[in-house]
Computed example of a mutant assay.
Amino acid sequence: MTALPDLREQAETLGQSLPPLLAEAELLASTIMLGEHGRRRAGMGDEFWQYRPAHAGDSARMIDWRRSARSDTTFVREREWQAAQSVTLWVDTSRAMGFSSHGPTKADRARLLALATAVLLLRGGERVGLSGHDTPPRAGKSQLLSLTRALTAPDAAADYGAPDATGISAHGRAVFVSDFLGDLAGVETALARASDRGARGVLLQILDAAEEDFPFDGRTIFESMGGSLRHETLRAGDLRARYLDRLAERKDRLQTLARAVGWHFTTHHTGDAPLPALLWLYRAIEGGR
């Protein structure tokens, strides 16, 4: 009988946390007019995609004789590939993601973009999962609730996060969302594991404006969100050039790592509107930019 109040309290807490994030994600996703979801890859399916001129090797069954009769060219009627793909999300829950100089934290923006991406993919019939939370890729509306619960779970205790490549399906897609300010060895390992499974994906770096611009001067105390790192200086402005150089080097390294395995990389700032980042994410997952 003692477990009942605890269960009720957990349910009430979940009920308070689910609607805002889920509602915001669905609202953001609804601003993208995708129409009927199209994978834009030729293959076996029911949906018509396009006509193309017939090539050597095309069988007679593939030719659309009605369309070809209106032209001197023989045309093939292509259908879109209808097989659902699996997309695995990893969202950094480390303490570093809790930073905000103003506006939303990096964690809030990461969760919003990840969940809005899931909304779009699930509406298109894809399977979406979340690594590190025992939430394997599945389709359907119920999966959206599972993803929301996992994304609103308590944050991890680590200062910085490392991508978790477990659960990524062979030849599937993956999305890693983080500030990527920790040790890049973890990123390299996760990308290698994903690449070994033939997975393609996206690295989305989320930074606060203060982390991008370094607007500090005079006496400043820099401390990690977990308190494990601390540095005090009397002339913070003297560090700006070196900091910006190191940040640029880190971005270049992330870009190089992504390109080496056929992935995409970009940086999004919490002070910017989330819609352009969501559009980029969706197109990158689908294979465009």
Results as ranks from 00 to 15, higher is better:
97 M>T: 11
41 R>C: 01
254 L>R: 14
6 D>K: 11
160 Y>G: 02
91 V>M: 00
8 R>C: 11
125 G>S: 11
173 R>G: 04
57 G>T: 03
110 A>M: 11
98 G>V: 08
72 D>E: 14
6 D>Q: 14
3 A>L: 13
14 L>W: 13
86 S>Q: 15
69 A>F: 01
28 L>T: 09
262 G>E: 09
11 A>L: 15
7 L>W: 10
114 A>Q: 12
83 A>C: 03
281 L>D: 09
138 R>Q: 12
75 F>A: 05
18 L>G: 05
167 G>I: 01
212 E>I: 00
213 D>V: 13
160 Y>W: 11
83 A>S: 06
261 V>Q: 14
235 R>L: 08
74 T>M: 06
181 L>N: 09
195 S>D: 11
156 A>W: 11
216 F>T: 02
96 A>G: 12
17 S>N: 15
167 G>F: 01
209 A>K: 12
241 A>M: 10
127 R>Y: 09
46 D>A: 15
15 G>M: 09
66 R>A: 09
43 G>F: 08
260 A>R: 15
254 L>P: 07
57 G>K: 01
229 L>Y: 11
135 T>C: 15
134 D>W: 08
202 V>Y: 02
273 A>K: 05
64 D>F: 03
171 H>T: 10
185 A>C: 10
268 H>K: 07
270 T>K: 10
161 G>N: 10
170 A>L: 06
217 D>K: 12
42 A>V: 05
29 A>Y: 10
